[in-house]
Design a protein around this nucleic acid. Structure first.
Length: 458
RNA sequence: GUCCGAAUAGUGUAGAGGCCUAUCAUGGAGCCCUGUCGAGGCUCCGACCCGGGUUCGAAUCCCGGUUCGGGCGCCA
């Protein structure tokens, strides 16, 4: 058995198109409609079960599995021998007749006329694909191409797709325009997290940690409501189950809005996403054993002051006003809200100005507090946002008081001097949204090729 | 960055100084088998992370390294 079959296939005159290799996906075949019809399926050899007088070959594609049945007495001996010798996870196309069969999975089996071996897999495989033997995350990520052949892994990425599709539909319907901002930038966004330096011809540049400054500039440009789904890069050496050095951020910015307006967009969007995933990815949800409930809106608003009180009343920690919440404090607040409301999602609002980024708008009547918010899931922070400062003088003084140099922000500040409307926005971590939705414990599970402190390949 | 833990066939594991010629499952090779669907039965194949040390004897104890996992910090 070798891969010459593929070359023979091409030589036979079929080289103009390969579409005949698959007329149907495995799960598209309905024996009531296609009974006794000729079809071809294409995919990976999931298993070969040879019982002697009868041999079953299970072929798997993106949609599911199909059983190819070869009965010894009624099958060409050469074809039977070929089927028996198939190496698991090889790529094949099987042409045959659909036969309704109650004993077979999906209610049908395929009686083959021919099996075309398109590419033979090496053996042994880097890991099991059938679910019989678990593999560690690290092993799975090293062999992501095989890992993706597992139903559970595919299910996560089908759901992630539905999440992003729902985001695009929701925001588009809400009047937002999708934009793309540069990922190679000259200066730091917020000063806080560290950036990956790169060489840009003969200059130093960085990978952007957030589209923040650019989406604000677009408000000055009059695009009014924009969103971006794109990568963000953080050079932090954090090493946890919920951090990556390259993540996907879903960001919006909207003019003539305050923080409460965009919070309302955010909670409606999250509820919509849950609803769309339930509607469009129920198969994947059941593969993962997840039962989703659409979160109720509005999400509870907890003020920063209340949150401090919850932590101090319910844990051993004693926080002072102005402290940020650590992981255990976040969990305490999340559990408290869940007990009170039965909901996992909530907002923390009215943060001290000094622990929020420079662009967060302080309350006009109490500048110690800012119009900033975090949107939390019981398990972790999902999103943060704010009404932004649109007044250039105030922005400059806030940049300075955070210990940053306004000169580095010139490209940004210029946009505020020629007519910047009041505006607000937020960013939500796509991976965190998906993992909190599915109860996935490691963020690497919801990224195809995660980039963390240690992993740079594949 | 810091603290804690782990590393045994391709994969997942058992193992507590001599019982290890290293367990089991999965997998691979071969044989038997006509309805499997984690098929079954029989035979065979395949591993102690690296380097030092302790000991008569080390997969097992100690030291160093490497890699991985988890907590925290920081954040999305």
């Amino acid at each position: 058995m070798n891969n010459d079959k593929y070359w023979n296939l091409l030589k036979s005159g079929d080289f103009m198109s390969l579409t005949h290799l698959r007329t149907h996906y495995a799960s598209e075949i309905d024996p009531k409609e296609l009974g006794d019809e000729k079809v071809s399926i294409a995919g990976w050899v999931h298993e070969v079960r040879d019982l002697g007088g009868i041999c079953f070959v299970v072929v798997r594609d993106r949609t599911g599995k199909a059983q190819v049945t070869l009965v010894k007495k009624r099958t060409d001996p050469e074809l039977l021998e070929q089927a028996r010798k198939l190496v698991r996870e090889s790529v094949v196309s099987v042409e045959g007749t659909v036969k309704s069969e109650g004993k077979a999975p999906n209610g049908y089996e395929l009686i083959p006329d021919g099996i075309t071996l398109l590419n033979e897999a090496e053996s042994p495989l880097p890991m099991d694909t059938t679910g019989k033997v678990e593999a560690e995350l690290d092993t799975r990520l090293d062999s992501r191409f095989i890992d993706l052949r597992r139903e559970k892994t595919t299910a996560i990425f089908k759901i992630r797709h539905e999440v992003l599709r729902a985001v695009r539909n929701f925001l588009t319907d809400d009047g937002f325009i999708e934009v793309s901002s540069p990922k190679v930038v000259a200066t730091a966004t917020e000063g806080g997290t560290s950036l990956f330096p790169i060489t840009y011809f003969d200059r130093e540049a960085f990978l952007n940690q957030s589209p923040q400054l650019f989406k604000q500039i677009l408000m000055s440009g009059g695009l009014d409501r924009v969103f971006e789904i794109g990568p963000i890069f953080r050079a932090e050496e954090h090493d946890t189950r919920r951090h990556l050095n390259e993540a996907t951020s879903i960001d919006i910015e909207a003019s003539f809005c305050d923080h409460f307006d965009v919070m309302e967009v955010l909670e409606r969007m999250v509820a919509w996403i849950y609803g769309q995933v339930i509607e469009n990815a129920s198969d994947s949800l059941s593969v993962l054993g997840v039962e989703l409930k659409v979160p109720s809106v509005p999400f509870k608003r907890v003020t920063y002051d209340e949150a401090i009180g919850i932590v101090n009343d319910n844990t051993d920690e004693m926080l002072n006003w102005g402290d940020d919440f650590g992981t255990s404090a976040e969990h305490a607040i999340g559990e408290y809200v869940f007990r009170e409301t039965g909901e996992s999602h909530y907002f923390i609002i009215d943060w001290p100005t000094e622990i929020k980024p420079f662009y967060a708008m302080p309350y006009e009547d109490n500048p110690v507090l800012s119009k900033a918010f975090d949107m939390m899931h019981r398990t972790m922070e999902l999103s943060s946002g704010a009404q932004r400062i649109h007044i250039p003088e105030l922005l400059v003084s806030r940049i300075e008081s955070q210990g940053l140099d306004p000169e580095g922000f010139d490209f940004y500040l210029r946009a505020f001097r020629y007519g910047m409307p009041p505006h607000a926005g937020w960013g939500i971590g796509c991976e965190r949204l998906v993992m909190s939705m599915l109860g996935v414990e490691n963020i690497r599970d919801v990224v195809l090729f995660p980039r963390d402190r240690r992993r740079l390949s594949p």
